[in-house]
Amino acid sequence: MDYQQILELVKEVSKAGLTNFEYTEGNIRIAMSCPQPEGKIVVPASNIALQEAIGVSANSVNGANTAGTEGVAAQSQAAEAVGKKGGNLVKSPLVGTFYTAPSEDAEPFIKVGDTVKKGQTLAIVEAMKLMNEIESEFDGVVTEILVENEENVEYGQPLFRIQ
């Protein structure tokens, strides 16, 4: 991959609004990470992803079913309840599948009671066949893991509580 191709890749990843991106070709590995500004709303790239994010089936996209909006309201209330316990929450930067370890037979990155440093890998969220490392935004002790291994997570969903 030459310099122009790398620049084009960076531009396209930025334009897509991705927060984490990894690319491997032969012995070349490119990893990009971009922090999300607070309050920014990320819209999934496809209608299917959007439907999954709000819990609406493909047959009810035209508004025939309101279960999706009720599901979003329930998730919102659950997130508020989680936030009231105190501590710092590490939230998912994207929609995907949550993994506690780098492979099925490996030890989890962290457990409840572990002391973590800012920047330490806590878990992985897989999105569109890309493995995105979730790093701690805080120094402290992990007091709660709010998601089960291999569970689907939404953008902004609390994953960990760190005191």
Rank of each mutant, 00 (worst) to 15 (best):
V90R: 12
K84C: 00
Y99R: 00
V147Q: 15
V13F: 11
E148S: 09
T24S: 13
N132S: 03
P108C: 08
I48P: 04
V61S: 06
R161D: 00
G68A: 12
G39V: 03
A45Q: 09
T100D: 07
I6M: 15
A45E: 13
G17N: 05
V82F: 04
M128S: 11
A127M: 07
F21S: 04
F138W: 11
V116F: 08
A79D: 14
A31R: 10
P102M: 10
V141M: 09
N88K: 12
Q120L: 05
P93H: 01
K84D: 08
I54S: 10
A106T: 01
A45V: 00
L159F: 13
F138H: 14
Y155W: 10
R29G: 14
Q5W: 04
V116Y: 03
E70F: 10
I162M: 11
M1P: 15
P108Y: 02
E137T: 13
S76V: 03
F160R: 14
L50A: 11
S136I: 03
K84I: 00
E22V: 12
S76W: 01
G71L: 01
Q75I: 01
A81Y: 04
K15I: 12
V112M: 03
A74T: 06
N152V: 14
F21K: 09
E107F: 07
S57M: 06
N152G: 08
E148W: 05
P37H: 01
Y3V: 14
V142C: 05
Q120S: 06
E8C: 13
E133M: 08
E151L: 07
L122M: 09
N20T: 11
A106P: 00
R29N: 13
A106L: 02
A123M: 03
P35G: 01
Y3H: 15
P93V: 00
A81R: 13
A73H: 08
A53R: 03
E38L: 07
L94C: 06
E52H: 09
A45C: 00
I134G: 12
I54H: 05
G87W: 09
E52I: 10
N27D: 15
V153G: 13
V13N: 05
S14Y: 08
E70G: 03
